[in-house]
């Protein structure tokens, strides 16, 4: 019996069944596959309305082989809070309560319940599955849609910048908050494991490209997720008790060792209208985020 190291590390148990309804090349389906591998069967998945409500199954079969709760669109973190408290009263603290919510279900309609759960500090892991629009209802813009991106409700490109959800979450002084990408499953796996080992409200923001929503061919999902990181548009990092650390490969990119932003954006139909001026603005958005990070790291270094 031979197994590649990465297969050994991620584990061969699958808690998601093939033949599910996700589109060809769905980043969210891959993210769910790796999330479930890591949390295992002693877990309850809480999911608000979104693509995953559909991926979860039909009359034919249920896709996930672990307990799964469908919630109203804005309520995932509130439902998970209740589940976590009930389990705790029953002495069943060894069961992981995990929210998997879309960007719409997190940045927008789910923000109040997320804030409540984070402030009360319930023992849950909240995973934000970010495909940067309301995909399940036909690609409408959300607070997580980046500036410039075409959606069916921003046909000339979104004018506003992507909301900085990490700052909102960190303002609750949560013990653990991180970003991740479907192109880096070992990093995601490590972060989920670490989060499960910490008591309280944990947050992981996973970037999961969507071929029909971002307008790219189905084989490019991982390539695009990787380019998001290599261009610096998506930064892999984690905050433990408020202390920031960059993770590879983002940790080598502070001094601009990055591919150009065009190499990420121009692979996607949703950015194909972007011309010089807007491109410069999008580059400034990225630089601003990096300079903020630099500042935080410098401040930490002095402490």
């Amino acid at each position: 019996m031979y197994r590649p190291k990465i297969v050994e590390n991620l584990g061969e148990d699958e808690w998601i069944y093939a033949g599910h309804p996700a589109c060809h090349g769905c980043g969210a389906a891959l993210g769910l596959r790796h999330l479930l591998k890591t949390i295992g069967k002693k877990s309850i998945l809480v999911v608000p309305a979104g693509c995953t409500s559909i991926i979860a199954g039909t009359m034919n079969a249920a896709t996930f082989n672990i307990p799964f709760i469908h919630t109203a669109f804005g309520a995932a973190a509130a439902v998970a809070s209740g589940v976590a408290e009930a389990l705790s009263k029953k002495g069943m603290d060894d069961i992981n309560v995990v929210v998997w919510a879309g960007d719409g279900g997190t940045y927008d309609i789910g923000l109040a319940s997320l804030s409540g759960a984070a402030e009360r500090g319930h023992n849950i892991l909240f995973v934000l599955d970010d495909n940067e629009a309301y995909m399940n209802t036909g690609i409408q813009r959300s607070g997580g849609t980046p500036r410039g991106a075409w959606t069916t409700t921003t046909i000339t490109g979104k004018k506003e910048e992507k909301k900085d959800i990490m700052k909102i979450v960190l303002s609750h002084h949560v013990p653990y908050a991180a970003t991740a990408s479907v192109a880096y499953p070992l990093d995601f796996n490590r972060k989920v494991k670490k989060a499960l080992g910490i008591k309280g409200f944990k947050f992981i923001h996973l970037m999961a490209p969507c071929p029909p929503g971002w307008r790219f061919e189905t084989h490019m999902t991982i390539e695009i997720a990787r380019r998001a990181v290599l261009s610096g548009a998506w930064i892999l990092m984690e905050y433990e008790n408020g202390r920031l650390r960059l993770n590879p490969p983002s940790s080598n990119m502070l001094d601009k060792r990055r591919i150009s932003l065009e190499e990420y954006l121009m692979m996607q139909g949703r950015f194909k209208h972007v011309k010089r001026e807007l491109l410069e603005e999008l580059k400034r958005d990225v630089e601003l985020r990096w300079s903020e990070i630099k500042e935080i790291l410098e401040k930490q270094g002095k402490q």
Partner: peptide, 10 residues
């Protein structure tokens, strides 16, 4: 519905 393959058919 029971967990299993083929929620979306073949």
């Amino acid at each position: 519905t029971e967990p299993g393959e083929g929620a979306a058919g073949k």
